[in-house]
Amino acid sequence: MMESQDYAHFAAIPWCTRHLQGDRLIIKTSPSRTIKPTGEDALFSETLNSESTIFRLLQVYEEPLSRTERVNEVKAFLTLGSGLNGYPDVCHGGLVTTILDEATGMLIPINQERKSIPSGTFMTAYLNTKFIRPVPTPITILARTWFTKVEGRKLFMQGTIEDENGIVLVQAEALYVQLKNSL
């Protein structure tokens, strides 16, 4: 695990610390926070990368025992600012859905690298989101995402956004489909 500003930020938050401990944890800044010459990930690497939007983002998952075994769950910690408000002190619902789309999508490159799911381009076919409670701002949240089923070109996932007390604020179910041809 490399020491990063993102890691240091979340390690300093007591409730996050308990999620950042374990012998087989992989902890890293999300690759979507890196500016790419192709423009890929510009939303999270540029537009939503500021003190008033998504100040910090860290992804965490447990390394399976086998190198080819699928990583079934990813946790993403995010510190959200008031620049994401849709209502005073409440994150805009569209941004909440965007965060869940990003978090569920984290499972794909991790597992393609392990060759535990097919290579190629996957896109969101649907992301059904259930808003249980408002996501306040500013806040540090935990987005959890996991596979429920993998069927050929279809990846079925679920996800939640939780607050520091583990209270689920938002739930989602997603389907990603592998494109037959690359973009």
Rank of each mutant, 00 (worst) to 15 (best):
T38K: 09
T34P: 08
L183Y: 12
I141C: 07
R133S: 11
D101F: 06
T140F: 07
E3W: 09
L84V: 02
L48F: 12
T38N: 11
P64Y: 09
K115L: 11
F55V: 08
R33Q: 12
T17E: 15
A11Q: 14
A125V: 09
L84S: 07
L175P: 02
D41Q: 03
A143I: 00
M157C: 14
A11W: 13
A11L: 13
F147W: 11
T104H: 02
T148R: 08
G152Q: 04
D101R: 06
P134M: 04
Q158E: 15
T121P: 06
N128E: 13
K75Y: 13
A174V: 10
I141N: 01
T53H: 06
Y126M: 00
H9E: 07
N181P: 07
E73F: 03
L84G: 00
K75R: 14
G39N: 12
E102L: 08
E151V: 09
I26M: 04
G166I: 01
M106S: 07
I132F: 11
T17I: 11
E162I: 01
T29E: 11
P64S: 05
M2G: 07
F77E: 08
P134G: 03
I167T: 15
E73Y: 03
P138N: 04
I108A: 01
V60Q: 03
I99M: 02
Y126K: 03
D101Y: 10
G120L: 03
V170K: 05
T34S: 12
H19K: 12
M157Q: 15
A76K: 10
Q5E: 15
L65P: 13
T98W: 10
E73C: 13
N165E: 13
A125I: 09
M2T: 05
T97R: 14
I54P: 02
R67F: 12
T79W: 09
L57D: 04
V168I: 13
T98Y: 11
I132E: 15
L127A: 03
W15G: 05
S116I: 00
N128P: 08
L183G: 10
P136E: 07
I35Q: 15
Q112L: 03
E40D: 15
L175D: 00
L142S: 09
